[in-house]
Amino acid sequence: MASDGVVVEIGKVTGSVGTTVEIPVYFRGVPSKGIANCDFVFRYDPNVLEIIGIDPGDIIVDPNPTKSFDTAIYPDRKIIVFLFAEDSGTGAYAITKDGVFAKIRATVKSSAPGYITFDEVGGFADNDLVEQKVSFIDGGVNVGNATPTKGATPTNTATPTK
């Protein structure tokens, strides 16, 4: 695992066909100046998982989280898009600690492993708008004895992609 920078880890949970599971997305290594904004994309298989919603985690402190935390689910493109932009203008609602960034709610549709993997990152910046190093650890849903650990090695991303 990367020793510096922010680590975004997609949790690994267990479920069975027809059940709804909650998959946490963790941030670790949050910089001392916090995270003022970030955007990134995960990939998944809508034939295996139906993403039914995404909720902000406990490290989102904006009293009205829909102003700073936004997501979009595109089953036709097989992606989930995340956007966080601190909304106070003063840094008061920045992410300042490690913990759960988001909770992905999904219904298991198939007995195949439900991988959720890193696809791309736009950027991560602290309260001074300084770009942060970030790496990703894939996860998803274990169905029966299947284990979604494909790509469990962190993917280092030093520069934003478009």
Rank of each mutant, 00 (worst) to 15 (best):
I59C: 05
V7D: 08
D70W: 15
F118W: 14
P75F: 03
T147G: 10
V141W: 10
P56Y: 07
Q132S: 05
N142W: 08
I80H: 10
S3R: 08
V8A: 05
F84R: 02
R77I: 02
Y93S: 13
G89W: 15
I80A: 05
I116E: 02
N156G: 08
S110Y: 04
G123C: 01
I10L: 07
N47T: 05
G122E: 00
T155H: 10
Y74M: 01
D70Q: 15
D4K: 04
G114I: 05
G144M: 10
V130G: 08
I79D: 02
E120I: 02
G123P: 00
G34L: 06
A112M: 02
V130W: 09
D126F: 00
G11D: 14
I51E: 02
S68D: 06
E50K: 15
V17S: 08
K67V: 09
G53V: 05
N145S: 09
G11H: 08
S3A: 15
R28N: 10
I60V: 09
F27Y: 14
E120L: 01
A125L: 00
F136Q: 05
A152H: 11
D98A: 12
T90C: 11
V13T: 06
F124R: 00
G139T: 02
D98Q: 15
D98I: 05
A92G: 12
V25C: 02
E50W: 03
K12F: 15
T117K: 10
A112D: 12
D70L: 15
R43Y: 14
K150H: 07
R28V: 06
K12Y: 09
R105W: 05
V8H: 00
P160K: 15
T107N: 06
I35D: 04
T66M: 05
A106I: 08
N127H: 01
E50Q: 05
S16T: 07
R105A: 13
P56W: 03
G53P: 11
Q132T: 09
A85P: 00
A94C: 11
K33H: 15
G53Y: 03
K162R: 05
K78W: 02
T90I: 15
A85M: 09
T96G: 11
S68A: 14
D126V: 01
T117L: 09
N47Q: 04
Y74C: 00
N64L: 07
I23N: 03
V81P: 02
S111D: 09
G140N: 14
P75V: 05
Y26Q: 05
A125Q: 00
A94I: 03
T157P: 12
K133A: 05
G99W: 09
Y26I: 02
T96W: 10
T161P: 09
V108G: 13
P75M: 02
F27Q: 12
S135A: 10
A106F: 12
I23D: 02
S111N: 13
F84Y: 02
V13G: 13
P113F: 05
P154I: 06
T117D: 07
L83A: 00
V8G: 07
V130M: 15
G114M: 06
Y44L: 03
G29K: 05
T161K: 12
Y26A: 05
S110Q: 09
S3I: 05
E9W: 14
F40M: 03
F101T: 08
V6K: 02
K150M: 04
Y93H: 14
A112W: 02
R77K: 01
I23M: 12
I60K: 15
E9D: 06
G15Q: 11
A92M: 14
D39K: 01
P65T: 14
G11Q: 05
G89E: 00
T20E: 07
T71G: 00
T149W: 13
K109I: 09
V121K: 13
S88E: 02
F136W: 11
T157Q: 14
G57I: 03
V134M: 02
P46Q: 05
V141S: 14
G11C: 13
T157W: 13
F101P: 07
G18W: 03
C38S: 08
V143A: 12
T20I: 14
N156D: 09
P46I: 08
A72N: 00
G57V: 03
V48F: 04
E22R: 14
T155W: 12
R43N: 15
I52E: 12
G151S: 11
P148S: 04
A158V: 10
L83T: 00
D76H: 02
T107I: 06
I60P: 11
E86Y: 00
V17T: 07
V134I: 14
S111G: 13
T147M: 07
I23F: 05
D126H: 01
V100D: 10
V141P: 13
V41S: 01
K78L: 03
G57D: 06
T159H: 13
F124P: 00
P56M: 02
Q132Y: 01
P24W: 09
G5L: 10
K97M: 05
T149D: 09
T157R: 11
D98M: 07
V61I: 08
I52S: 08
L83M: 02
K67E: 04
G11T: 08
G34I: 03
E22K: 06
N142V: 08
I80K: 05
G91K: 15
N142E: 09
F82W: 13
V6G: 07
I51A: 05
V130H: 13
A85Y: 15
T107D: 10
V30M: 02
A92F: 08
K109M: 07
G144T: 13
D119L: 05
D126W: 00
T14H: 10
I95P: 09
T96A: 11
A92R: 08
E86A: 01
I52K: 04
G53L: 08
R105M: 03
K12V: 04
P63H: 08
A92Q: 14
R43E: 15
V7Q: 05
L49G: 15
K133Y: 06
D87Y: 15
F27M: 13
P65E: 14
S16C: 04
P46R: 08
D70K: 01
K109D: 15
G53N: 08
T157L: 11
E131R: 01
V134F: 01
A92N: 11
V21S: 06
T90W: 14
E50A: 05
V21G: 05
F82P: 00
A146M: 13
T66I: 13
V21D: 13
V108N: 08
A72M: 01
V61A: 11
G91H: 03
E86N: 00
A146C: 09
P24C: 06
E9Q: 10
T147E: 13
K97H: 10
P113R: 14
G139Q: 11
D76Y: 02
P160S: 12
S135M: 03
P63E: 15
P31A: 04
F84M: 11
S32V: 08
T71K: 06
T117M: 13
I59A: 13
V48E: 03
F69G: 04
S68W: 08
A2E: 02
V7A: 10
G151P: 12
P75C: 04
T96Q: 03
V41H: 00
I104G: 06
E50R: 07
R43W: 02
Y93W: 14
T90R: 15
G114C: 06
K133C: 04
T161Q: 12
D62I: 15
E131I: 01
K33E: 02
S16G: 08
T90V: 15
V17N: 15
F136I: 04
K12S: 11
I52P: 06
T155E: 07
T149V: 11
I54S: 03
P63G: 15
P46L: 06
V48G: 04
T117S: 10
T66E: 05
N156E: 12
V17H: 09
S135E: 04
A92P: 03
V108L: 10
P46F: 09
E22A: 06
I51M: 02
V6R: 08
G114D: 09
Y44V: 05
V134S: 08
I116Q: 12
V108M: 14
D55K: 08
T147R: 10
P113L: 11
T159D: 15
P24D: 03
R28C: 15
N127C: 02
A102R: 14
P148V: 04
T147C: 13
I95H: 03
I23Q: 12
T155M: 11
I79F: 15
A152E: 10
N142K: 08
P46C: 08
V81E: 01
V13W: 04
V21C: 13
G89F: 03
D58K: 02
P113T: 03
I104M: 15
F82C: 02
F84Q: 03
R43D: 05
P31I: 15
G57L: 13
F136E: 05
I52W: 03
S111H: 13
